[in-house]
Amino acid sequence: MSDSRFENVAELIAEARQGDAVCRDKLFGLCRSYLEIVARAQVETWLRAKVDASDIVQETMMEAFRDFEHFGGKSEQEWLGWLRRILAHNVADFVRRYRGTAKRQARREVPIRGARDSTAAFGVAEPAAPCATPSQAYLQIDTELRVTAALATLPDDYQEVIVLRNLERLPFNEVAQRMERTRPAVQMLWMRAIKKLQEAMGEEGERITDEG
C-alpha cells in the first residue's frame, strides 16, 4: 500500500471496505481536521458565539465508523459528502439542544446510493470554476482536505480569524468584535493568516510529492 497522503483516498476506501483496519484508521484520521474545521464553522455560524465543537466531531466520527459498511460510494467526493451529511445532522441536533428543544430528531438513515446529490446540496462546487471537468473536481477535493490539514497547523488566532472571516463569512467589523481587537488589527492578522496558510498548504503539497 502506498503511503501517499491524499491521492489515494479512493484506494483507502476500497481497502478499508475489504476489511483492512489500518487503511480504515488512516481514512478516518485523514478527515479529522476537515471535520473539526467544518463543524466549528457550521456551529459557530449558527450560534454566533464561540463553541467547542469537539463533541460533535467525536460523535460524527463514531457514527461514520459504525455505519461505514453502509457507505456505498467510491470517490473522495462521495466520501466527504457522506461525512458532511452525518456531521450536518449532529450539528443540527447540537443547535436544537442548545436552543432548549430537547426533542432529538429521529436519525434518518443516510441514503446509501444516490450519493451524487451531496455535491450540490453541500456546496462543494467552487464558484470560480463553475463547469469543473472530472479532473478539476478531483483536484478540488484534494484541495479541501489539504486546506483543512494546513489550517489545523496554524496558531490559534490565525485559525480563528480565518474561520470567522472566511468560513463564517463575518465582515471584519464583527470579526474585530468577536476577537476583541481593532478592525485594522484583525485585517492585518487575516492577511498574515492567509499568507501562513498558503505556506502551510505548500508544505503539505510538498509532503505529498515527497512521500508519493
Binding site: A41, E144, Q198
Partner: peptide, 19 residues
C-alpha cells in the same frame, strides 16, 4: 496562491441553507 487559498476556504464554508 492567495486566491487559491481563499477559494478553497470558500468551498468549506457551510451554506447557510444547509443547517
Amino acid at each position: 496562491s492567495s486566491l487559491k487559498c481563499i477559494e478553497a476556504l470558500e468551498g468549506l464554508a457551510p451554506p447557510a441553507a444547509e443547517i
